[in-house]
């Protein structure tokens, strides 16, 4: 399957951000994550917290090089919402992508919006 054949559709551009619908909010359980694929092949890990906020980080775990962050456990450390890498358990701040254990490491974050019960990811 190629990227073009996928069900991602570009939406109207606002502020030069391209939005891609990825799934219904309901497809993502509270305090869970899923992986989404952007048209350019970028993998994004999308997380929903208990209060229905949605965050998006790169799916690639910078420590192991495997695209797995979406499969980590979602929770909080000292009040910060985090995901723990399923590979070696480093934590990443869902809001900033910063690694809690190592200040010099961060993963990219992506704009997210939820409208009409649908989650969309942005690409600037």
């Amino acid at each position: 399957m190629t990227v073009q054949q996928m069900t991602v559709q570009p939406m109207n551009a606002v502020d030069s951000t391209m939005w891609f619908e990825v799934c219904a909010l309901g497809a993502l359980g509270r305090e869970e994550g899923v992986a989404a694929l952007l048209p350019d092949g970028t993998q994004v890990a999308v997380f929903r917290t208990h209060d229905d906020r949605v965050f998006a980080l790169a799916n690639l775990d910078p420590f192991s090089g495997a695209a797995v962050l979406a499969r980590g456990i979602v929770g909080d450390l000292g009040g910060t919402p985090v995901v723990a890498s399923p590979m070696h358990k480093q934590h990443f701040d869902l809001r900033t992508g910063a690694c809690v254990e190592d200040g010099t490491v961060a993963v990219p974050t992506y704009p997210v919006r939820v409208s009409g019960g649908t989650i969309s990811l942005g690409r600037t």
Binding site: M1, V22, A66
Partner: peptide, 15 residues
């Protein structure tokens, strides 16, 4: 058990 929520069955390009 899907690789990508918006593209089930698409192989993970990093593998």
């Amino acid at each position: 058990f899907t690789s990508f929520v918006n593209a089930p069955g698409a192989p993970d390009p990093t593998i």
